[in-house]
Design a binder for these strands. Structure first.
Length: 488
RNA sequence: GCCCCCAUCGUCUAGUGGCCUAGGACGCCACCCUUUCAAGGUGGAAACGGGGAUUCGAUUUCCCCUGGGGGCACCA
């Protein structure tokens, strides 16, 4: 039997890293097994649809390279892949259950249900449907129908017995039926609930393994009951550990950056995110951190999925992203940087950026940025034309604090010495300034810092002489001159 | 309140009865390299929640407790 798995998001929000990790594990399992990865959209709640959510889902998956074999935009033999287009299947299934007396119509109003729950809460009882409509007779039903009450359909849960199954990561799990209630399978608007639609589709689409987040574990007995009542064979269940926020609670917008696309915006690379997410709840061995997509596919196994929840640690993601940034080819990094810088640089910097120029900057920043969005601050001075903006005190720094004259003299010497450098290249520049420091009785670093600020307006920059080389003679001398004026 | 799951450094994890004086990684600290910032190198601090039981021997098996998480909708 070939493996068929699915990722079944509902378009009710932007997918967060936990959702996508679930997609990733499904995808990895399918690719490892040579099976199929299905994308199914669970849009059965018409009231909660969020515009743009579907695009965000597709965007997120594509960004990580999680391609699906069947689903939206990819026709397959089991379509359609939007549940809202499969209502007939659910309706038929529900009717079959009613006919078999495995389900029944319930006419209780939401208000009454609310009351029941409130009452149960008061008595510290578990909130459950009190099964009032479970045994309605023909007359009762006719009466309700006559009143025009639109019913829901509830599953007739056995009052005793138990549901058990072997979860691939959890092991043997048992639920007593008496702790379950008669859950709704068709809402009054005629749409199925998750439970029904999910079971019907997983069966119809011949899904072999259900990999989903652990939050679904408690509803698995309901699904088992449905599979059984419908006469379907249940798939293998694989409940994945949750990904929690730093407060150990379920991920929500409350946790700041949680959406995958938000990380993309911050300048994380898809290959780093892929690697990081793949290691949240799964590991290859006791030492491997950097794993390529091919290796993930080759080695991924359900057996090595961990049971305990994981906290999403951005710090480690950021480190890993740095590893991937450094591994990029200069050409690729230049490409990414151009796109990014054109976005982030001040508006007066002319676009488009010159590719060859950026290519010269790349080696200076590659090992200094962990995220793409750090590039702009680190490189603005390469792009702005006029005088730099920085407070004069920055020139003085710690070394020349209160010694303005000394700083000015040093800078003057440097400024007058530099024009004589015939080749404006880093080694020649260093060859001019390093001896000068000694002549002036200054530590090389102190003189260099003075020049660095004059030329870049910043105290943290790529190596000074390489930077000056890229900036070019004219711009450097003009900035040196400008700095001198600020000191007088 | 009821049900279910989980439990190794702050975090991600290795570990499946003796190989553990518990390994790796991020982060943190120190030192080295160094013109700043990084990157890199070296070293360091840092964990088996508690109690029973099984066993010659438990991080590893079982039970209880505690702690954490999840679920209990006409949401998925």
């Amino acid at each position: 039997m070939t493996v068929r798995v699915r990722f079944a998001p509902s378009p009710t929000g932007i997918p967060h890293v936990g959702n996508i990790r679930t997609a990733l594990f499904n995808w990895l399992f399918a690719r490892h097994e040579g099976g199929s990865f299905v994308l199914r959209i669970e849009d059965t709640d018409q009231t909660r649809l969020v515009p743009g959510a579907l695009d965000a889902i597709i965007d997120s998956l594509r960004w990580l390279g999680l391609d699906w074999d069947e689903g939206p935009e990819v026709d397959g033999p089991y379509g359609p892949y939007h549940q809202s287009q499969r209502l007939e299947h659910y309706r038929r299934a529900a009717e079959g259950l009613i006919a078999k007396d495995a389900a029944y119509r319930c006419y209780c109003s939401p208000e009454r249900l609310e009351q029941v729950r409130a009452e149960q809460a008061r008595r510290k009882e578990p909130p459950r449907y009190d099964r009032r409509c479970r045994n309605l007779n023909e007359d009762d039903r006719a009466q309700e129908e006559a009143k025009g009450t639109v019913p829901v359909v509830r599953f007739k849960t056995p009052l005793s017995g138990r549901e058990e199954f072997d979860d691939i990561v959890r092991g043997h799990v048992v639920f007593e039926n008496e702790t379950l209630d008669d859950f709704i399978i068709v809402k009054s608007d005629g749409f199925p609930t998750y439970h029904l639609a999910n079971v019907v589709d997983d069966h119809l689409m011949e899904i072999t393994h259900v990999l989903r987040a652990e939050e679904w574990l408690p509803s698995t007995p309901r699904h088992l009951l449905l599979y059984d009542a419908l006469g379907y064979a249940a798939p293998q269940f694989v409940h994945l550990p949750m990904i929690l926020g730093s407060d150990r609670a379920k991920l929500s917008k409350r946790h700041g950056a949680v959406s995958l696309l938000e990380y993309r915006r911050q300048g994380y690379l898809p290959e780093a995110m892929f690697n990081f997410l793949g290691l949240l709840g799964w590991s290859l061995d006791d030492r491997t951190e950097i794993i390529s997509r091919e290796e993930f596919i080759r080695y991924f196994s359900l057996e090595r999925i961990v049971k305990n929840p994981a906290i999403f640690d951005v710090e480690k993601l950021t480190w890993m992203n740095g590893v991937y940034v450094r591994a990029l080819s200069p050409e690729r990094l230049a490409e990414l940087l151009i796109e990014r810088l054109e976005e982030d640089l001040p508006p007066d910097v002319p676009r488009p950026l010159d590719r060859d120029y950026v290519l010269r900057i790349v080696p200076l920043v590659q090992e200094r940025i962990k995220r793409l969005d750090e590039a702009a601050v680190l490189t603005v001075f390469f792009f702005v034309e006029g005088p730099l903006e920085y407070p004069p005190e920055l020139l003085l720094g710690k070394r020349f604090a209160g010694k303005r004259d000394e700083a000015r003299r040093a800078l003057e010497s440097a400024t007058s010495r530099l024009p004589a450098v015939d080749r404006w290249e880093h080694d020649a520049l260093e060859g001019a300034l390093r001896p000068l420091a000694e002549e002036l009785g200054l530590k090389a670093g102190d003189l260099f810092m003075l020049v660095r600020v004059a030329v870049t307006g910043q105290t943290a920059t790529p190596p000074l002489f390489e930077t000056m080389e890229v900036l070019g003679r004219e711009r450097c001398l003009a900035r040196l001159d400008d700095a001198l004026h600020r000191l007088t």
